[in-house]
Design a binder for these strands. Structure first.
Length: 482
RNA sequence: GGCCCGGUCGCCUAGUGGUCCAGGGCGCUUCCCUUUCAAGGAAGAGGUCAGGGGUUCGAAUCCCCUCCGGGCUACCA
């Protein structure tokens, strides 16, 4: 049997990092089994639709390198792949269940339901539907359904136990009396999630149901629906949630949660996939740098963790740095490009690249590292120019001597700059670190960054001298203004 | 409240009865390298394996209880 798995996002916002992890696992499984991956858009809640959400799903997943075989834009043998375009299928399915006596029409108003729930809560009872409409004669119900607004509810058995052998969580069982007569078809004619997933997973020939842990509690509902139709239940697995630092499901308040945000911040898809895959899965070895191909080869569902994993930005940053360093210069330059202003000379960037790559954890950081090469407009602070244990007068002298030395340096290259500044240091009785510090701040504004000598080479003699001159002026003003 | 799931260093995790007085990675500390910062190298701190009872010659690993955390509990997905 060919493996067919699906990922079924709701277009209710831009692509969440947690959904990406789940999708990745589906993708790995499909690929390693030479199976088919299906994208199905579950837009059965018309109130929560967000424009552009499907674009976000496509953009985000494609950026990550995930591809699928069937979907809204790809088409396929089970089209359409958007649930709102499959309404007749769900309506027929619901009607079949009513006809077979497994489901019934319910005419209760939302107000009655709300009042009932409030009462139950007040009496500290379990809040669930009281099956008020379940006793209406089918004939009468069918008649009323013609004119009255109604929903279709599942007739849940009175008692018993229902369970699943989850591929990750193992055997999980629920007492049936804790499950209410679930709404299958809403009054607007749309199915609920619980009807739609079951019907579509069956119709689309899905062989393995993989989804996030938060769906585990509603699995018995789905089991009951499968049962009502008399359909076989495919193997099911739930994957542990991705959590925020506080242990709760990762959400907006925890910071960035959208793929596009990470993309915009300069994270590489390789790093995202690598990092994400390792939340909730481990190869069981000490290897941890994996490309997507490696993940496809190594990922195994029986190695998936049950406990949720917390999001750790530092670890992501580390993975990103690792992947940045693994890129060829050519490749890295290409990735950097969209992060750089168009007017920044790419040849200069290319020359700076070897200096940058070990210092940037994100592409955006890379941009900041070379900013000083392209703009003379940055704030200079006299105090930071002065090395520890030195004073402004000394720093001014160091700058003056450095400028003089650099004026003479030929050819204008890092090695010569190195030698020249070392000589200045010796003459001054300073440490080269101290001279470099002062010059660095004069030229780059901050005491950290790319190596100074190479940076000066890239900057060019004239601009370097101009900046040193400017810094000297500011240094001279320093004591007076202070 | 009810149902369900989970609980190994701050974080991601290895570990499925002995080779574990618990291993790796991130982060942290120190040192080396060094013009800064990184990267790289070396060393180190950090864990009553949630707690308590069992079972067993032997338990992080099996059983029970407790505690803590989380998810779900809609005509949301």
């Amino acid at each position: 049997m060919t493996v067919r798995v699906r990922f079924a996002p709701s277009p209710t916002g831009s692509l969440h990092i947690g959904s990406v992890r789940t999708t990745l696992y589906n993708y790995f499984f499909a690929k390693q089994n030479k199976g088919t991956l299906v994208l199905r858009v579950e837009d059965t809640d018309q109130d929560r639709l967000v424009a552009g959400a499907v674009d976000s799903i496509y953009d985000g997943l494609h950026w990550m390198g995930v591809t699928w075989d069937e979907g809204p834009r790809e088409g396929g043998p089970h089209a359409p792949y958007i649930q709102s375009e499959r309404l007749p299928l769900f309506q027929k399915a619901a009607q079949d269940l009513v006809d077979s006596g497994a489901a019934y029409f319910c005419f209760c108003s939302k107000e009655r339901l709300a009042a009932m729930r409030a009462q139950q809560q007040q009496r500290k009872e379990i809040t669930r539907y009281d099956r008020h409409c379940r006793s209406i004669e089918p004939k009468e119900a069918a008649e009323r359904a013609r004119s009255e607004t109604h929903v279709v509810r599942l007739k849940v058995p009175d008692q018993g136990v229902i369970g699943v052998d989850d591929l990750v969580y193992g055997r999980v069982e629920w007492p049936i009396e804790t499950i209410e007569d679930q709404v299958l078809l809403k009054s607007d004619g749309f199915p609920t999630y619980h009807l739609a997933v079951v019907v579509d997973d069956h119709l689309m020939g899905i062989t393995h149901i993989f989804r996030g842990e938060d769906w585990l509690p509603s699995t018995p509902k789905h089991l009951l629906v499968f049962q009502a139709f008399g359909w076989p239940v495919p193997p099911i697995a739930h994957f542990p949630n991705v959590l925020g630092a506080d242990g709760k499901k990762l959400a907006k308040r925890h910071g960035a949660t959208k793929v596009e945000q990470f993309r915009a911040d300069g994270y590489l898809p390789e790093a995202m996939a690598n990092y994400l895959a390792l939340i909730g899965w481990s190869p069981g070895t000490e290897e941890e740098i994996f490309g997507v191909d490696g993940l496809i080869a190594k990922w195994r569902i029986d190695q998936v963790q049950k406990a949720g994993g917390k999001w750790d930005r530092d670890r992501l940053d580390w993975f990103n740095g690792v992947w940045i360093r693994r890129l060829s210069e050519q490749d890295l330059l290409g990735r950097l490009d969209p992060f750089l202003p168009a007017e920044w000379d790419r040849n200069v960037i290319g020359r700076a690249l070897p200096l940058m790559r070990e210092r940037m954890r994100t592409l955006a950081e890379g941009r900041e590292l070379v900013r000083f090469l392209f703009t003379d407009e940055f704030p200079l602070d006299a105090a930071t120019q002065v090395p520890k244990k030195k004073d402004a007068v000394g720093a001014a002298l160091a700058l003056e001597r450095s400028a003089a030395a650099l004026r003479e340096t030929t050819p204008w290259a890092a090695a010569g700059v190195d030698a020249a500044l070392r000589k200045v240091a010796t003459d001054l009785g300073w440490n080269i670190r101290e001279v470099a510090h002062t010059v660095r701040v004069a030229v780059m504004a901050v005491p950290i960054g790319l190596p100074l000598f190479e940076s000066l080479e890239l900057l060019g003699r004239e601009r370097a001298l101009a900046r040193i001159a400017r810094a000297s002026e500011i240094l001279g003003e320093g004591p007076r203004s202070a």
